[in-house]
Every structure is written in structure tokens, then in C-alpha cells.
Design a protein around this nucleic acid. Structure first.
Lengths: 109, 109
DNA sequence: GACTTATATAAGTATGAGGTGATATGAGGT
DNA sequence: ACCTCATATCACCTCATACTTATATAAGTC
């Protein structure tokens, strides 16, 4: 499943927003999402699986809990894809500064 | 349709990549996408409609042609959503430089 | 070992998105 | 007026995905 497909679902985006704050157990996130979207526990679990399979999240087992944390790899790919559009909203000098900040500036001939 | 849903489709991403290079007629883009994905003209036209409806592209009529150009608004929203994850891959000093470049730095107490 | 809690998996269903072929629209040329 | 080219829209079909309920797994407690 492509990174953008993963981000296409509002529940998954919400889960990632929660993970952006830091680690959370499956149960904590399930409670939040159930309250907000009114879906079942298995539904949330399935979304978490999608996040795992696509490399957006990884799990650590802590007793009976599964502690999730965000994995930024696929998000960086998405960010990289957006690069080609930044010129449409970033003024030139600022774009240069951003590139320098990223260490991506190419040698000029 | 949410911006991320729009970007979830590979054909639409390809169309946007083409538009990132500059304006293109519907026909030109249709030819490229048909060659690459093997779908029909109506299919491409429907994807273009999605891009229009979601504010990713706008059209100018030139005789019998429709000339499309990219509209960056929704892409900026996507970029803004990603902000909360940048800390996971951007070293701190570079993150600061990026923020300064964007003029988003908040006053510190 | 039985019970509970936490979480995942299985199996089935339904809705929506993306495809198709056929057709409409609309501009330009003859 | 008619034909063609460029593009959009229509009606229909199919399949993937996001649900559901039911059940399995695994750790901790009594």
C-alpha cells in the first residue's frame, strides 16, 4: 500500500497525529479514535496494522500492552515528493534557505 | 474529497507531476497517462475533474484545448500537516533554519 | 488452571472509487 | 450546415477497502 493511500484515511491520520505527540498504547489510541469516529476496536486494530505494514509505525511489547511509536521513513518520502511543488508557494530566497537547511543544495556548474 | 485521498491515486499523482513541470493540455497529459497506465480517455478526464474539484488544478480554455495548471493550495495543507512529523527527521538546527525560512518562528517568552 | 484484560485475526458484507463504452458538448475548418 | 478534433459527462459494472461480529492469542491475577 502506497504511503499516500495510508494517509488517505482519516482514522489513520488521527492515529499518526497521536503518535506525533509520542508513544501510545494501542488501547489509548483505540479509546480516542473510538470516541471520535465511533468505530469498533477491531477496526482500529486493522488500521494500526496498515500503519505497521506500511512502515509508519513500530510496536514494542510491554506486558499485555502494545506500545506504538511513529516511524518517519514513509513520511519523508511523502515530504520528498512534495518538493517538486514547493517552488509554487515558497519565495525563492526562502526556498534556498530551506534547501541549505536540508543539506540538499547541489554543486553549481 | 480530502487532499490526501486525491494524492492517493497514482494516476492523479502522475498528472500533478506533469503539472509541476508547467502547464499542459488535457490531451497531452492524457497521452502520457494512457501510455503509462493503460487507461481510457474518460478515466483520465475523471481524474482531472477530481483534481479540479479538490482545488489542485485550474483550467484555462484555449480554442478546443483545456490548458491545466497546478494550484498549490491543497498541497500546502498537506505540507502543513506534515509539519508535526518533521522533528522526527530534521536535526534541530536545521529545523530552526527551516522555520526561519518560512517565517513561522513564534516569539519566545 | 480459570478468569480478565489487551490486542489481534478471521470471515463476511457493503459501499464507494475507478474503470469501461457510449454519448454529449463545443470550437474550428470546409 | 456538416465534419472533425478535443474533452467532458453518463450509465453501468467490478473490485478493493473499511467496516462488522465472532473468535483467537497472550500476559497478568487469583
Amino acid at each position: 500500500m502506497h504511503a499516500f493511500d495510508v494517509l488517505g484515511d482519516p482514522v489513520r491520520r488521527r492515529l499518526l497525529e497521536l503518535l506525533a505527540e509520542g508513544e501510545h498504547s494501542s488501547g489509548d489510541m483505540t479509546a480516542v479514535v473510538q470516541a471520535e469516529f465511533g468505530i469498533s476496536q477491531p477496526a482500529v486494530s486493522q488500521h494500526l496494522k496498515v500503519l505497521r505494514d506500511a512502515g509508519f509505525a513500530s510496536v514494542r511489547i510491554d506486558g499485555p500492552r502494545r506500545i506504538y511509536s511513529v516511524d518517519a521513513g514513509p513520511m519523508r518520502e511523502v515530504d520528498a515528493w512534495l518538493d517538486r511543488f514547493r517552488m509554487f508557494w515558497t519565495p525563492k530566497l526562502e526556498a534556498l534557505a530551506t534547501e541549505v537547511a536540508r543539506g540538499k543544495r547541489k554543486r553549481q556548474e
